[in-house]
Amino acid sequence: MASATEQSETDQVREIGHEEYDPIGTAILIGIYFLILVLLWLFMYFVEFLGNGPTVVGALLTVVGLA
C-alpha cells in the first residue's frame, strides 16, 4: 500500500472495518436504480420504439405475412 493513501479522518466519529460493514443503503439505492432501468427500458422499447409507426422490416415478416 502506497504511503499516500489516507490513514485517518479528522471528523471521523467511528471506524468501520470491512467485516462489520453492510452497505444496506447502497443496496436500497441500487435496487431503486435497477427498477427505474427496467421500467424505462420497457417503456422506451415497447411504447416509444415499437409504437413509432412504420419500421424497417426484413424478409421474415413477408414470409409470415404470406403464410
Binding site: E9, D11, Q12, V13, R14, E15, I16, Y21, P23, I24, G25, T26, I28, L29, I30, Y33
Partner: peptide
C-alpha cells in the same frame, strides 16, 4: 462501479456518524 462507489460513500457517511437506511 455504481455499487462500489456508492458503497464507499456510504462507508464514509457512516464513519462520520450517519445512520439509517438512507
Amino acid at each position: 462501479t455504481a455499487f462500489t462507489v456508492v458503497a464507499s460513500m456510504e462507508h464514509g457517511a457512516r464513519q462520520r456518524g450517519g445512520t439509517g437506511y438512507l
